[in-house]
Design a protein around this nucleic acid. Sequence first.
DNA 1: GTGGTCTAGACCACG
DNA 2: GTGGTCTAGACCACC
Lengths: 130, 130, 130, 130
Amino acid sequence: MLFYVDPGSGVPIFRQLMDQVRTHVAGGVLKPGDEMPSIRSLSVPLGVNPMTISKAYNLLVHEGVLERRPGLPLVVAEHDAGDLADRRREQLRASLAPAAQMAYRMGVEPLEAEALFRELLAAAAAEEDE
Amino acid sequence: MLFYVDPGSGVPIFRQLMDQVRTHVAGGVLKPGDEMPSIRSLSVPLGVNPMTISKAYNLLVHEGVLERRPGLPLVVAEHDAGDLADRRREQLRASLAPAAQMAYRMGVEPLEAEALFRELLAAAAAEEDE
Amino acid sequence: MLFYVDPGSGVPIFRQLMDQVRTHVAGGVLKPGDEMPSIRSLSVPLGVNPMTISKAYNLLVHEGVLERRPGLPLVVAEHDAGDLADRRREQLRASLAPAAQMAYRMGVEPLEAEALFRELLAAAAAEEDE
Amino acid sequence: MLFYVDPGSGVPIFRQLMDQVRTHVAGGVLKPGDEMPSIRSLSVPLGVNPMTISKAYNLLVHEGVLERRPGLPLVVAEHDAGDLADRRREQLRASLAPAAQMAYRMGVEPLEAEALFRELLAAAAAEEDE
DNA sequence: GTGGTCTAGACCACG
DNA sequence: GTGGTCTAGACCACC
């Protein structure tokens, strides 16, 4: 299953889904032209209301990540390859920037913050490889 | 003025205030025993509802950052340095972990991710020094 | 090819087809008695579901633009000129009325609104002639 | 009452509301900084579900027409005055363009189409003056 | 008081 | 089958 949801995370479900779609598109798991799973087919296993998924998909269409074809499944929008690396970097930057600011504001030494991040990167790789 | 507020930032105002107090405490601008500005003296120039400031102060008291002395202004609490360092590290880890996972899922090289983070740390320091 | 289709335009495909048939009839490209292309011969090159084309044809029969002859291809219907002119005028009025109200409500000078409309009429003519 | 809704018009309610807000902003009825009527206060007299109004407001925030301040009413966003005339023109153009294309496609004489529009502009002015 | 989110369930348009 | 829209009603965060 490409998607999962944590209802207790505080992050709105529709936003969790949007982030995962964007991540998968940026990571090449979802390629331009690929059909997205239908709202209903996602709704059942995730235990999420169809409207919530619809909302996420809708906003992604608005953003240009997905494309609508009336009556047919949504597809990943075309975007030139050069975009891909940029997108990835942009995604990651958006995710890291608040942490960097927090580190600065809390007076954590840059080197210590980097060490922590390095440790977490290794942990993520290890965890997924289980 | 020690504090400022951006209503359009998406971050709740009481949280912006809490962050700034923590920053100033961590950075030594506010030292243990210092008196906090009164709710009214902040409310007027910031254009913020007094209840919002009160909420921020209350939560900081609850966190142990501030101390209440009935009938007198709030003061910055005593704190032993070890505690603070641990808490800081924990907060930072919570903020960095999702970014690390995203980097892994998107297939970004760890070294590239670290470089980006380093850049953002420098940017945060530079920006705040303006 | 007399017809084309843009799935991403927001306009339903069957409606795009209907509009193009009406255009060609009004413009004399399709004359009364002319045979329409078969559903299959349109479906394949356009990449459109045959049911969609069938739907467009059916509605045009219902409107009296096309005529069905059992077992034979659809043909463009006979039409007396007066009828068509009235219907055209009525359709156009329905399309222009909301724009006129909007112009009034926004306080746009009638002369300015007319000038804009004139410009758009010229643009439409130029664009289609490409 | 600034807003009204026609549930039977075929146009989605949330879109009707968006159009009216945009029209009023473009027409200067709603000025930057003005507070929008609250979702609930609109919901009752219009007989429309709060979520529907919320959706319209939401999209307008996304478009930059409205601004969000957590816990407070939505306000009309700032936009420099030069924008205003442009916006009006753009609004009107978006509304007139399909009609112009329809006139062309139906083979209506430009002069006849203009005459019809002129008549409708006069009618709109007369009707509202009742 | 404000808006944001989610659920449950219905109906419609499109292919 | 697909997604789009709307309703009714609940809960939450923020000011």
